[in-house]
Simulated scan of single mutants.
Amino acid sequence: MAHAHGEYYQPQPSYWPLIASFALFSMAASFTAYLNGVEIGKYLLIAAIGVLFFMMYGWFREVIRESEAGLYNEQVDRSFRWGMIWFIISEIFFFAAFFGALYYTRDLTLPWLLGEGAKGVAHTFLWPEFTEVWPTNGPQSVGGEFETMAAWGIPAINTLILLTSGVTVTWAHWGLKKDNRQQLIIGLFLTVALGFTFVGLQIYEYGHAMDELNLRFSSGIYGSLFYMLTGFHGFHVTVGSIMLLVVLFRSLAGHFTPKHHFAFEGVAWYWHFVDVVWLGLFIFVYWL
C-alpha cells in the first residue's frame, strides 16, 4: 500500500508501467508485422490491445482505491496535473509528426515533382512523367486507382458528434462543480454515448472506404497518411470513451466532490484535446 507522509507522497512500487510499455511496444511491432504481410501479426495485435485494456483496468482500480482511501494530498494533485499536461503535450507532438508528413508531401514534395521551385529540377531524373496532383498513389499508380473520402458525409457527422460531446462533458463538469450529481451523470452518459457512436461511424467509414472507394494502406502516401491519422485518432477516441465510462461508473458510485475531482478533469482535458485534433483532421485530411 502507498503511504502519504505530510506533503510528500510515496507510492508503492508498481508493475503497471512495465505492462503498459510492453502492450504499446507489442501493438506497434505486431501492427508493423501485419502491414508487411505477416498473417499472425493481426492476432498478436488483438492480443496486445487486450493486454493494454487489462493494464488500464488494473491500474485504474489501484489508483481509485488509493484515492478513495484518502491517501492523496495536494502534492499528489499537483503531480497528477503536471503528469497529464506533459502527457497531452507528448500527444500533440505525436500528431504533429503526421500532420507534418501530410504538409511535406502535399505542399512541398508534389510541387518539386512537378518541376517547380529550386528543387524542381530533380523531377527530370526521379519522375519525368509525373503529371498528377494531390492525392497521388505513386509512380504509374502502383497503389491502384482509388477515390478520396468526401468531407460532407460521415466525417461531417462525426465532427458534429465530437463538438457536441465537448459541450456535454463541459456541462457535466459544471454539474459536478455545483454538486448537481444528476447533471453530472446525464452529461457523462451523453458524452460516452457520443464517443462510442463516433467510433462506430468511423468503423463503417473504413468499410466503405476499402470496399467501395478502394482506399487502402497501399493507396500511395495518401492512403497511408489517411489511415495513420484517422486510425490513431480513432484509437484515442476509444481510449477516451473508456476513461469517460470509468468516470461515469465512479460518479454513479458517489465518487468525486466539487473541490476534489481531478480524475474527471484529467479525462475532460484529454477529451477536449481529441476534439481539437479531429478538427485539424477534418480540415486538412477530408476537406482541403
Results as ranks from 00 to 15, higher is better:
263 A>T: 05
225 L>D: 09
71 L>W: 08
17 P>T: 09
105 T>K: 06
271 W>E: 01
263 A>W: 06
252 L>E: 02
150 A>Q: 03
192 V>I: 14
25 F>Y: 14
127 W>Q: 14
195 G>P: 14
212 E>P: 00
255 H>L: 04
161 I>T: 06
177 K>P: 00
235 F>Y: 09
285 V>E: 04
110 L>C: 02
111 P>R: 13
229 L>V: 14
244 L>I: 01
278 W>E: 02
100 G>S: 08
269 W>S: 01
180 N>W: 05
286 Y>F: 15
50 G>T: 08
153 G>F: 00
283 I>W: 06
114 L>Y: 07
194 L>G: 11
248 L>P: 06
66 E>S: 10
251 S>H: 03
237 V>R: 10
57 Y>A: 10
286 Y>D: 00
89 I>E: 04
76 V>D: 00
36 N>S: 12
186 I>Y: 03
122 A>S: 14
6 G>T: 04
189 F>N: 08
149 M>T: 02
193 A>M: 14
69 A>D: 05
147 E>L: 07
156 A>Q: 07
254 G>F: 05
168 T>E: 10
23 A>I: 11
145 E>F: 08
168 T>P: 07
144 G>L: 06
174 W>H: 12
149 M>I: 10
60 F>R: 11
4 A>Q: 15
279 L>D: 02
277 V>R: 09
169 V>Q: 02
90 S>G: 11
158 N>D: 06
98 F>D: 01
113 L>I: 13
3 H>N: 09
188 L>A: 04
189 F>V: 12
162 L>V: 12
221 I>M: 13
172 A>Q: 07
116 E>G: 03
35 L>R: 15
48 A>D: 10
183 Q>D: 06
216 R>P: 00
202 Q>H: 14
165 S>Q: 12
283 I>F: 13
267 V>A: 12
153 G>T: 02
83 G>Q: 07
8 Y>M: 13
191 T>N: 11
24 L>P: 07
184 L>E: 07
52 L>T: 08
21 S>P: 00
179 D>S: 13
84 M>F: 13
249 F>H: 06
89 I>S: 04
237 V>Y: 10
235 F>D: 02
193 A>E: 13
34 Y>R: 10
194 L>P: 09
187 G>K: 03
239 V>T: 12
186 I>T: 11
192 V>A: 13
256 F>K: 06
12 Q>Y: 08
139 P>R: 07
283 I>S: 01
128 P>V: 12
215 L>F: 04
141 S>Y: 01
34 Y>F: 14
139 P>N: 04
172 A>S: 10
220 G>Y: 01
206 Y>A: 08
273 F>L: 04
186 I>N: 03
160 L>R: 02
209 A>M: 01
261 H>M: 05
117 G>Y: 05
158 N>R: 08
285 V>Y: 03
202 Q>Y: 11
63 V>Q: 13
273 F>E: 11
3 H>V: 13
64 I>H: 13
43 Y>K: 05
209 A>G: 09
19 I>S: 15
219 S>I: 03
159 T>V: 05
246 V>R: 03
